[in-house]
């Protein structure tokens, strides 16, 4: 049973690691499917994490924290949207600006408000999203072999945001492929001329897309600071926004594919902390750095077309200008 225990705890940890990636990747899908490159996932997430921690600490209510995180991320999204849509600016540069700004502002404000070198004060459990034990988890875990512990350790026991993340994937899939908004969103990312000539405002579709991306980044950031952890720390996203971007590409801009990529990357992160000093037969000790590099390496390999081919939405990154 020991082996199962280890496996299940690894899987449970994978899901927890994957959760912020999932939110951010879905954010990336909405944005990029509408034709707006979102390098700024990292910065939005970071600022969202900060805002959630601050609001939750000040109000004592994690739901307010979530709203705070979402609100800030929407603001950053609108900034990115304004630069990309209205000003027809370079979307990569705008995204980078968001990231720089978030790195700087979170520490600057945190430092000024709490004087802890950019950290926010530790949160009590009441100020956080904590694990939920699903009905029957304990009983099943003790009485049913394998399936029971699987339910108890892998499926049950996560905080609410983890379950929301999976709901968001299903919702995203449904929105993209079963609603009018989804049809228009996908069309905008491929051929904005077609959308415009059909009498739909390209700008409005894109603004809505980046706002949704903001909301989802707010969830991602909130999860990091007040669910997975109990405070905001400097640079606590540590590249997760970029990993989410990699997952979007790896998942070929499809929610199902991106979910799979996020779970894989989450699994690798969970593994990373567990393989240190572990001898693997035949291979020896694997460097933990390898695990942190794998998502990036396979994204490069995929983009280079060595395994399959990731084809981005055709109009992604291109500001829409009416043709003459």
């Amino acid at each position: 049973m020991d082996m199962f225990d280890q496996l299940f705890s690894l899987l449970g940890a994978s899901i927890r690691m994957a959760t912020p990636l999932i939110f951010a990747a879905m954010a990336g899908i909405y944005s990029e499917r509408s034709g707006i490159v979102d390098i700024g996932l990292e910065g939005k997430m970071l600022f969202g994490a900060f805002a959630a921690a601050v609001v939750s600490f000040e109000t004592g209510n994690p739901f307010f924290g979530l709203l705070g995180g979402i609100a800030i991320c929407i603001l950053l999204s609108l900034m990115h949207g304004f630069a990309s849509v209205k000003m027809r600016g370079d979307q990569v540069i705008s995204g980078l600006a968001v990231n720089f700004l978030a790195s700087g502002l979170t520490v600057t404000l945190g430092h000024a408000w709490y004087s802890q070198g950019g950290l926010t004060p530790a949160l009590t459990n009441a100020q956080r999203f904590t694990g939920i034990t699903l009905p029957g988890a304990e009983w099943l875990g003790e009485n049913i072999p394998v399936i029971g512990p699987l339910y108890e350790q892998v499926i049950s026991g996560h905080n609410i945001l983890v379950y929301v993340a999976f709901g968001v994937v299903a919702l995203t899939y449904w929105v993209l492929f079963n609603t009018r908004f989804g049809l228009r969103l996908r069309a905008t990312g491929e051929e904005p001329n077609a959308v415009d000539s059909a009498g739909i405002s390209v700008a409005w579709v894109r603004y809505r897309a980046v706002i949704i991306a903001g909301v989802l980044c707010g969830f991602a950031g909130t999860y990091l600071s007040i669910a997975q952890n109990a405070a905001f720390q400097r640079e606590m996203t540590s590249g997760r926004g970029y990993i989410a971007l990699a997952a979007v590409i790896f998942g070929k801009w499809h929610p199902r594919g991106a979910l799979a990529a996020c779970l894989l990357f989450g699994f690798l992160q969970a593994l990373e902390t567990r393989v240190q000093n572990v001898e693997i037969p035949m291979i020896g000790e694997l460097p933990s750095q390898l695990f942190s590099a794998i998502p990036y390496i396979i994204t490069v390999v995929l983009l280079a077309g060595f395994i399959g081919k990731a084809i981005a939405p055709k109009a992604v990154g291109v500001p829409y200008v009416k043709e003459r």
């Binding site: 079963n178 049809l183 228009r184 996908r186 069309a187 077609a194 415009d196 000539s197 059909a198």
Partner: peptide, 27 residues
């Protein structure tokens, strides 16, 4: 238009109905 305003990965039907879906749900 001289340059077609068509979404290439979409089906003919999706292209035709774009902007004229009439309701929020596609089915």
């Amino acid at each position: 238009h001289q340059h077609f305003m068509l979404v290439e990965p979409f089906t003919v039907l999706e292209n035709v109905m774009l902007g004229m879906e009439g309701q929020g749900l596609l089915a």
